[in-house]
Design a protein around this nucleic acid. Structure first.
Lengths: 200, 200
DNA sequence: AGCCATCTTGCGTGACCCGCATCTTTGCGT
DNA sequence: ACGCAAAGATGCGGGTCACGCAAGATGGCT
């Protein structure tokens, strides 16, 4: 029982296979040129099985981000306890949004796809919301607050998340030459610093 | 040409009729107990026409909020120029989120419906995003900045919007006895005040 | 009045989501 | 090692939906 059952391993494996297949195909061909049948085939399961895992193509694709949401809480909690909250948050967000170097191209393409296609943006925003929830929980834990009773963690999580989103949007919209990480950090500090802050 | 053509009036009318019909029916029966046919019938058009206006039931329902997004920019720009930005934003958000007194009950029910149903939350978040965009634009205008080039308006808009969302969530989650407007204002000030602020 | 652009509508198609019944695989106790 | 119960995978079928297309109706302009 200590080991995770083979059953769940397989289940998780197919789940991720489906998710990645959906993402890859969608990036290649565009969302509505890829059918459920294709995704299922790429993952080696029947179309019906696909629907046991995901209720829609969008959900399949965005489940990757949703699963990654766990990571951001861990990233925050891994920061040294003495570090100022702002810095800890900036660092955590950076590790979360900075794509792994090997996947760089693909990841950017995926992000663009997900954010441009109206059909995907809704689900993508749900993923952002999930990330926010996890973040709020981690913030509460770090500050010794209760995410159910206290408003503070929710607000901070929403602020950080929103600022980051603004930074990302701004980075990939205005053809800035600045480094992605710098823009992101700048946006987060701007958001957390309050309104009187610098207006870079 | 000065007057809006009868044609466009009618078009707008049916559009809103469809949107409100969709919302009302969804609140009454639950989203998946209401079919496109019902919505179209309630608005007095054919089902096919319904699809000329909206690509999905969710879009129909949330279009109300999207249309309302225009309002929030106007609300901000209507604030006196001397007022501190924080206060102006708080006031604008309040007028936006505070439901019209007559619609109180229905509006709360609608909000709950939209936020609970997974099928609607995605589209609802897109509406929030639209509101943010409008807000950013208004902020830029008020501060004499360029929403395309400057990061500041985007961040502030995202922060305010996020803080407000957190406040709303917190208000309707933890059975606070506090007034809605107070919680909202508190959340917004907390968000805009920066991290060092009070932790009410 | 008459014409054109635009909107509405009906029909048909393809895709999708999911309930249900069945078959296969896995985990576990003996 | 063996067999049984639980859980997952699959096939089938139904209900819904989004949308292209072409024809009909309506507003607006001269």
């Amino acid at each position: 029982m200590g080991v995770v059952g083979l059953r769940e391993q397989k289940k998780l494996a197919t789940r991720q296979a489906l998710a990645w297949a959906a993402l890859r195909l969608a990036v290649q061909r565009g969302l509505d040129n890829v059918h459920v049948e294709d995704i299922a085939a790429a993952a080696g399961v029947s179309p019906r099985t696909y629907n046991n895992y995901f209720a829609s193509k969008q959900e399949a694709i965005c489940s990757i981000t949703v699963d990654r949401a766990e990571l951001i809480g861990d990233a925050l909690l891994a920061r040294p306890a003495g570090e100022p909250l702002v810095e800890a948050l900036a660092a955590a967000m950076l590790t979360f949004y900075q794509p792994p170097a090997e996947l760089d191209r693909e990841w950017v393409a995926a992000t663009q796809l997900v954010m441009r296609s109206p059909a995907l943006r809704g689900e993508a925003l749900k993923a952002v919301e999930a990330t926010e929830r996890r973040l709020a929980q981690a913030i509460a834990q770090r500050c010794g607050l209760d995410v159910e009773r206290d408003l503070y963690p929710l607000v901070v999580a929403a602020v950080v998340s929103g600022a980051a989103r603004a930074g990302i949007h701004h980075w990939q919209q205005s053809g800035t030459t600045a480094e992605f990480g710098d823009v992101l950090a700048s946006a987060i500090r701007m958001g957390l610093g309050g309104i009187g802050g610098e207006r870079a």
